[in-house]
Amino acid sequence: MGRNEAAHASASDVSGDTEEFDPIGTLTLIGIYFVILVLSWVYIYYIEFLGRDLIVVG
């Protein structure tokens, strides 16, 4: 299967592709990941951690 891709990947069309390709799917996926990270952190830090017994104050 390597052959076809190799043909695609000749160096000449490199610069053209750069301007054409907008990774919108990537931005979407990573945006979802970002939201999950923030929500998980808010839960684990502010609810789970700060809500536990014996908070260390000194």
Partner: peptide, 11 residues
């Protein structure tokens, strides 16, 4: 079995 690694979009 040889496989080639293509160059990057932004090289």
């Amino acid at each position: 079995l040889a496989e080639e690694l293509p160059p990057a979009l932004s090289g």
